[in-house]
Amino acid sequence: MLAYILRRIAGMIPTLFVISLLIFLIIELPPGDYLSNQISQLQAQGEAASVAKLEFLRREFALDRPFMERYGVWVGLWPGPNGFDGLLQGNWGWSFEYSKPVGEVVSGTLLLTVILNLATILFVYIVSFPIGIYSATRQYSWGDYGFTLLGYFGLAVPNFLLGLILLFLMNQWFGVSVGGLMAPRFIDEPMSFGKFLSIVSHLVVPTVVIGTAGTAAMIRRLRANLLDELHRQYVTTARAKGLSERRVVLKYPLRMALNPFIADIGNLIPSLVSGSVIVSVVLNLPTVGPILLSALQSQDQYLAGFILLFVAMLTLIGMLVSDLLLALLDPRIRLGKGAAA
């Protein structure tokens, strides 16, 4: 098992390199870069002094070199103007737009993004499982139809609309301040119990909004999977043993229906990050989504590249976790290789 984990982690390294190359390639596909755009803008206005500074910056960040060299300098495989100084050496790059190192730009938001994503995943699973099980075991009942209708609402109502309505209601009923992930007075404060409570109360709306569509989809899939499993022979065997219906369902078919959802953990992360951009903009959430969007628009390439790489990394870790969980939960995967004959 340990060898398997090590092999998987070793396999992630080349994968990350390929992903980083692709990310870099795609970000650089539009003509020009952040600095050359600035230069041409300044030249049009006739400000020659600033142009010289920008030209210096271009050399400083090796933007005047060929593509593969630029990539090598970014990753840290190729000596740049300051020697080997790239991602591998812990230098996450420079954001031109914010005139700050990338690390400083994203440090606060990354943690909040991870927290928000974890909360959303938990929300999706906690809400969809009981409802999915209920719908499957009481197929075509009023409750089943009701949840189905609710699920379609969840899928069909635009996220930002739902977000705005919920924000209004939260403000009206509980006095939670509109937008953001904490009350304005806690921003830039050190962590305290009050700040923690504020973050939790502000997490509710974004979690529900981002999670609704995923929850609705997952209820439908769990219901379908479970319905398939409920008619299997081994369920009848369990009933023939005299188990109560609740224990039959929870012990046998649910375990079988679980696999696709565990396999899904890895896929959920990128879709949550990219899917929540609009919501983050509308709800004014300090997550990486909006930063990524503006970085891509202004060709702030090192910032965009780092965020994308970070999401890719999360995805790979998620996939590793889901594979390990699958092996843990399903003996056929854990032991199946040797017993194939």
Partner: peptide, 16 residues
């Protein structure tokens, strides 16, 4: 008690 026709599918594959 009861035993069934298909021994292949009558037991849950995930439990010992």
């Amino acid at each position: 008690a009861m035993i069934f026709q298909e021994p292949m599918t009558s037991l849950s594959p995930l439990h010992t």
